[in-house]
């Protein structure tokens, strides 16, 4: 049961993030929602690669025959984190610019583009 806990946390994080996108009106909070989904997905990837009792996947230092955790999901997670930083920074930058123009971060009031 305890082994499945990371996956439960992933589901909770992704669901919270999606709920944030629909329910929260502050643009910064929307970006945080994206961050929540991203954490959930990253946690899912890392938990996928975990092997019970595994050691870090470094061949030179490993005792022979010891089980290793999977290296690929860690590489994927690192890439995903880097991409996440870029997207978050870009979105926050746009939020700053929007605030300068409008003086608000309320999604209900940022509706110039409609119809």
């Amino acid at each position: 049961m305890i082994g499945n806990l990371p996956f439960v946390v992933c589901v909770i994080l992704v669901a919270l993030g999606l709920w944030t996108l629909v329910a929260k009106r502050n643009l910064i909070k929307l970006v945080i929602g994206i961050g929540l989904i991203e954490s959930g997905v990253n946690l899912f990837l890392v938990s996928l690669g975990y092997v019970h009792g595994g050691i870090p996947p470094i061949y030179t230092y490993a005792p022979s025959g010891a089980p290793m955790v999977l290296p690929t999901p860690q590489a994927l997670t690192l890439t995903s984190i880097v991409i996440g930083v870029a997207t978050t920074a870009l979105m926050l930058a746009f939020a700053v610019v929007i605030y300068r123009h409008k003086g608000t971060l309320d999604a209900r009031k940022i509706r110039d583009l409609r119809g």
Binding site: I34, E38, T87, F94
Partner: peptide, 19 residues
């Protein structure tokens, strides 16, 4: 003021779909 607004909305939706 319109361009950042469009970009923010697009980026938010693209991020969710990418994730």
């Amino acid at each position: 003021s319109r361009a950042p607004e469009a970009a923010f909305k697009t980026m938010l939706l693209f991020s969710v779909s990418g994730l």
